[in-house]
Design a protein around this nucleic acid. Structure first.
Lengths: 144, 144
DNA sequence: CAAATATACTTAGTGTAACAACTAATTTTT
DNA sequence: AAAAATTAGTTGTTACACTAAGTATATTTG
């Protein structure tokens, strides 16, 4: 590996991640989803295992606590999520989807899937496996 | 490709890009580089072809104009970059590294390279080629 | 059981990203 | 040459990422 390559992988990675997010966000907006890409990630994960605390959810979506706090704030304000007091621990909340939130997830899931597929044109299953392997390796290489 | 995979590539990509940036940023801070990761990218590109306009530079680093304006603002304030009036076009600037800016680039270049290599442990040249191919494919798939 | 420590979450501050709207200067069109 | 369109850059707004510091509650330790 040469110096130039080392300096480039981070650039390519950042550039592509931004484009992927931007592309999805634009579609989300055009189709009036009423949530951002990150809000969708949180909503979807919550729909798959409800009654999580914010810490548990933060861990699931790999976002830090302050970021998650604010995303939850917004989702509560929009009426998709509710913070219930945790029965045993008064420091924490149980996060629940409201009925509106559940409907939103059901409505958006196939549409998001559609949008996501666009990036994967001209690429196949092997490519995905390679992609995942390399990304995961980088990720764990930089683990604290 | 299944639905689950489509929903996952963007997650893996975003997660890894953030970790790579965060890792580098932490090192930058520990070693008192006095610039952020994004500011470094701009500085480095400027050192490789000076007297660019902001538009040209924005194009090089794949950042949009408002973002670049703000990064340049900071780099000027820190004394690494100067905006000179463009001789032919009064709308635009020529961006130049100051002497301090040039020194900074020379000083940081090997140190940044060192930091960047960390991510690439257990991965080789073939992996890089695959990685680049897939990222570039995704990028162009989502081109406007 | 009181003191120290840890955990859950929030707030504050800085930086970046994207979009929209804006000013000023330049180029094109008619 | 005036009007229209384009280009260069800035400003404003919303949202996210990360760090650090703060509050409140729980848990552990002496």
């Amino acid at each position: 590996m040469t110096y130039e390559q080392f300096s480039k992988y981070s650039f390519l990675l950042d550039r592509t991640a931004r484009r992927v997010k931007q592309y999805a966000q634009r579609k989300f907006k055009q189709q009036a989803f009423d949530v951002t890409v990150d809000q969708w990630l949180v909503l979807k994960n919550l729909s798959e295992s409800e009654a999580l605390s914010q810490s548990e959810l933060a861990h699931l979506v790999f976002k830090d606590h302050p970021t998650l706090t604010r995303i939850i704030d917004i989702l509560c304000k929009k009426g998709y999520v509710a913070r219930l007091p945790h029965p045993q621990d008064r420091r924490s909340f149980q996060l629940l989807l409201t009925d509106t939130g559940k409907e939103k997830v059901l409505e958006l899931k196939p549409q998001v899937s559609e949008i996501r597929q666009e990036a994967w044109k001209n690429l196949n299953q092997d490519d995905f496996n390679e992609f995942k392997r390399i990304l995961d390796t980088i990720y764990t290489n930089l683990e604290d």
